[in-house]
């Protein structure tokens, strides 16, 4: 997919909460300490945080980098599977908090872990069609895993925000994108249920690999690019193993995926996962760098984007805290405090 008018990212920002739960804490409570650990630790939101508060901080960081008046935003899109309200849009709260609108298109997106990149696709379309000058797309989640479930090791929290604008003012131009979806029962949560279920055998194949790989391959074919054309690749990060294997299968080398692979330190931030990886790459990117971003959301689907960094990036990287500033700002907590903060104790 390609917009009529050239578009790109004019600003970006991330947010990761400060609390960390080591995977060994989960294993100690539920597996007698013996288990293979998919990550080292995951991020945990504080008791006063949710998908909206995290989205707001990521969005304000994106606004700082874009140096755009929030009143100029034509759209505020928030993708999440942990919107604080079942009915009441997160997007209006985010818009009010950052000073956007009221004349603004605001919508909340849902598609498991790819709700954020879906918001990005929609934002590219709006700006590319000339309907709005700037559009804000956010992926933000405070993911919940059922206690003792293997998802509890990785279900993390974080947010990333991207401001899409005309290519001439962009710090990274979007060359093209792709979306690829099928009806796959790999993971779901019924209405009113607190915790999701997953259809175990669907998780890797046909879920993750069955969508990430074809979406990436189709986009590379559209653009006539190969892995060697890219400085960095960021794939959705449900654990450390899947994205590394998928990137290797696509022909990428570890040095291309390691900068944006943060799951070992913050867990899977769901709708924020691949987008936070992108922000970490943009923090270090230089002009001319080409970046491949591929999300994955259960249900299932992937969005793929190819970006080329411009010479405007270096002046904007330092205008907000870098993603690794948030990753390094960590306070480890034990399982008991985690259980309290995440509302897992009946009081």
């Amino acid at each position: 997919m390609k917009t009529v008018a050239p578009v790109g990212l004019v600003g970006y920002g991330a947010y990761v909460p400060r609390y960390r739960l080591a995977a060994s804490e989960v294993a100690a409570v539920w597996q007698g300490g013996r288990d293979h650990l998919p990550v080292r630790e995951k991020s945990v939101p504080g008791p006063d945080e949710d998908a909206v508060t995290m989205a707001v901080e990521a969005a304000l960081n994106a606004v700082s980098r874009a140096q755009v008046d929030p009143a100029e935003l034509g759209a505020v899109y928030v993708g999440s599977e942990s919107h604080p309200y079942a009915v009441k849009p997160s997007s209006t709260m985010v818009a009010e908090a950052i000073g956007a609108g009221p004349s603004v298109l605001a919508a909340s997106f849902e598609f498991a872990c790819k709700a954020g990149t879906e918001a990005l696709q929609a934002a590219l379309g709006l700006v590319g069609a000339g309907m709005v000058p700037y559009a804000l797309a956010i992926g933000s989640d405070t993911a919940q895993g059922r206690p003792s479930d293997e998802l509890e090791y990785t279900a993390g929290a974080g947010a990333a925000a991207l401001i899409v604008g005309p290519a001439e003012g962009a710090l990274a131009v979007v060359e093209g994108s792709r979306s690829y979806v099928t009806d796959t029962p790999d993971f779901f949560r019924r209405a009113g249920q607190k915790y999701p279920r997953h259809g175990g055998r669907f998780t890797g194949e046909p879920g993750y690999f069955g969508h990430v790989l074809p979406a990436a391959e189709a986009l590379l074919a559209d653009l006539g690019h190969g892995p060697e054309d890219y400085a960095a690749v960021i794939l959705h990060q449900p654990n450390a193993k899947f994205p590394a294997k998928a990137a290797a299968d696509l022909g990428f080398r570890p040095e291309q995926w390691e900068i944006g692979l943060l799951v070992g330190q913050i867990g899977n931030a769901y709708a924020g996962s691949s987008l936070i990886g992108l922000t970490a790459v943009l923090d270090q990117a230089g002009p001319g760098d080409r970046i491949l971003l591929v999300s994955f959301g259960s249900g299932a689907g992937s969005d793929a984007f190819s970006l080329v960094v411009t010479d405007k990036v270096s002046a904007r990287q330092g205008l907000a805290p870098k993603t690794m500033d948030y990753v390094k700002r960590r306070r480890p907590i034990d399982y008991a405090l985690y259980a309290r903060y995440r509302g897992k104790l009946a009081v």
Binding site: D48, E49, V52, T53, Y85, D325, Y326, K328
Partner: peptide, 27 residues
């Protein structure tokens, strides 16, 4: 920073507003 202030029960509204935190490195 922008945070939750309080929740009026599981079915009530959520109040948001300003809080402060120690200045972040990088900020």
């Amino acid at each position: 920073v922008f945070r939750q202030w309080r929740q009026y029960g599981a079915d009530g509204h959520i109040v948001y507003g300003y809080k402060f935190r120690p200045v972040m490195p990088g900020m």
